[in-house]
Amino acid sequence: MSEGQKPIPPGICFLWEEKALQLPEIVGDKELVKQIWEENESLAYTYIWHCLVSF
């Protein structure tokens, strides 16, 4: 994480706010896009944290 960046909270690996900046304007349901993004984020988060804690 570089200086000035917001800390990454538990459950995700990459902030939605940063991802959203990389996308064209979402003309449809923004919340749906955010929700699915974060659900998939949680899979990556689960992977690395269970590597640490469970394996």
Partner: peptide, 8 residues
């Protein structure tokens, strides 16, 4: 500073 980033 960034536990998840450090792990990856």
């Amino acid at each position: 500073e960034d536990p998840t980033g450090f792990l990856f």
